[in-house]
Amino acid sequence: MDATSVNQALKGFITEKLLHGDGADLTDHTPLLEWEIVDSLAMVSLLTFVQKTFGVTIPDAEVSPRNFQSIEALQNLIVNVAQDRPEAADGDTNKGA
């Protein structure tokens, strides 16, 4: 999984679903929490999106503001979780190998 595609997928999802198409100002550093782009409802749909798109389940302990504060932080989180558990990456379940 490469960071650029994760980044683009995240931007696409946030623009479309959370900003209703108005993502012109969205950057890697836009404060998602302070600007209330990601609230508790949005967080749940974001987690579902991440799980469906990248096959990555974010562990409860990593669901923290630090990891959700910007697109950059989210992207790093997803890439790291996927790396730690390669069997889950790209939806490729290769357990037992």
Binding site: L33, D39, S40, M43, V44, P59, D60, A61, E62, V63, S64, P65, F68
Partner: peptide, 15 residues
Amino acid sequence: WKFPAFFAYMTKGQH
């Protein structure tokens, strides 16, 4: 108050 949704996750996680 700042992160109510994250607080709920924290009660389930390692903390």
